[in-house]
Amino acid sequence: MVERRHWFSDMLPHLILTIGVGILAFPVWLAVVGSTWDAGTIANGTMPLYPGPYAVENYTRALGHGGRSSGEPVGMLMLNSFVMALAIALGKIAISMISAYAVVYFRFPFRMAAFWLIFITLMLPVEVRIYPTYQVVAQVGLLDTYAGLAVPLIASATATLLFRQFFMTIPPELVEASKIDGAGPLKFFKDTVLPLSITTMAALFVIQFIYGWNQYLWPLLITTRPDMQTIVVGIKKLLVTQDALTEWQIAMTTAVLAMLPPVLVVLVMQKLFVRGLVETEK
Rank of each mutant, 00 (worst) to 15 (best):
F188W: 08
P226C: 12
Q135T: 13
T18L: 15
I207N: 11
Y131V: 15
G75M: 06
T60Y: 12
P262Y: 05
L161D: 07
L49G: 11
D144C: 02
V74I: 15
P73V: 11
V136A: 08
L153R: 03
T253S: 09
V151N: 03
I130Y: 12
L194W: 07
T160M: 13
L277S: 14
M84T: 11
I180Y: 11
W116H: 12
R68K: 14
I154R: 09
R111L: 04
M201G: 07
E127W: 05
M112I: 07
G75T: 15
I98F: 14
T253M: 01
F119C: 04
L24D: 05
T230Y: 02
G52W: 04
V21P: 00
F26I: 10
F108L: 04
G75Q: 14
M201S: 15
P53G: 09
A87T: 08
V56Q: 08
S69V: 08
L204H: 07
G67L: 09
K179A: 15
T192C: 10
A150H: 07
A43N: 09
D191T: 13
R275M: 11
L220V: 08
I235E: 07
R4P: 02
R275A: 15
N80I: 02
G67D: 06
F167M: 15
L17Q: 07
T18H: 03
R5T: 10
F273C: 03
L79K: 13
L260T: 11
I42Q: 06
K187N: 05
P172Q: 06
D38S: 12
I207S: 11
V74D: 00
T18D: 04
R129D: 02
L220S: 13
G184P: 00
S178Q: 07
N58K: 05
F163A: 02
V240D: 01
V126R: 08
Y50W: 11
A102W: 01
K92W: 04
A251D: 02
V136F: 14
L245F: 14
L77V: 03
T280L: 15
E281I: 15
K187Y: 09
G141N: 05
G182I: 11
F106I: 02
M112E: 15
V33A: 00
T18V: 03
V268T: 13
S81Q: 01
G34R: 01
I222Q: 02
A113Y: 08
K237R: 12
E173N: 13
H6T: 14
P109L: 15
A94M: 12
Y54R: 10
L277W: 08
I130W: 07
A251C: 05
V104G: 00
R5V: 14
